[in-house]
């Protein structure tokens, strides 16, 4: 399955979540945000220190480059596999692989693991959020970490199944 981006899509998602994590931390802990309503309209200002500003700008630039790289790779994948296209705007997760009954089965096993993970981690996250006066950034970081975990579980389950059977994706 070399070159089939549907297998590595969770890793790409993890990469974008990681960059969002950096942005969230910088905005949440190193910036001062002011919301202003005036006659001209509604806007907000964000002030941050020199180092934080550099980190924020760099992370934002990396995110833009990353999204472009991801889009190029999706375009290449779609050109190479016209019957297995990755759609950008859809509610269905594009890492699902349902080419036949075997792939249905591995997708089912991986999504089952993700479901078990969420049934454990979401109540935990809610409990943590309710249990203390956390900074809202901490809650956002928690949500992003949970999303990272989801993609890692999905990817590692599918990868393990292929490795166990002696086939690399």
């Amino acid at each position: 399955m070399k070159g089939d981006m549907r297998f590595t899509l969770p890793l790409w998602q993890m990469g974008s979540i990681f960059i969002l994590l950096v942005l969230t931390l910088v905005i949440g802990f190193s910036s001062e945000t002011t919301f202003v309503t005036s006659e001209d309209g509604y806007y907000f200002e964000m002030n941050m220190g020199h180092i934080s500003g550099i980190i924020f700008s760099s992370a934002l630039l990396i995110l833009v480059v990353y999204i472009v790289m991801m889009s190029v790779n999706i375009y290449r994948h779609n050109k190479r596999y016209p019957t297995r296209k990755i759609k950008t705007f859809t509610f269905k997760p594009q890492e699902y692989i349902e080419d036949d009954e075997f792939f249905d089965e591995i997708t089912k096993r991986a999504t089952k693991k993700v479901y078990s993970y969420y049934s454990f981690v979401l109540p935990l996250l809610v409990g943590v959020a309710l249990g203390g006066m956390w900074h809202r950034t901490i809650i956002l970081v928690g949500i992003l970490l949970v999303a990272l975990g989801q993609y890692w579980i999905y990817y590692s389950t599918i990868r393990k199944m292929f490795k166990d059977a002696g086939e690399e994706e």
Binding site: M1, D99, D100, E101, F102, F103, A165, G166, E167
Partner: peptide, 12 residues
């Protein structure tokens, strides 16, 4: 009407 991988995994 299946993928090559499916045949391989059944054989194994």
């Amino acid at each position: 009407g299946v993928t090559r991988q499916t045949i391989g995994f059944i054989e194994k």
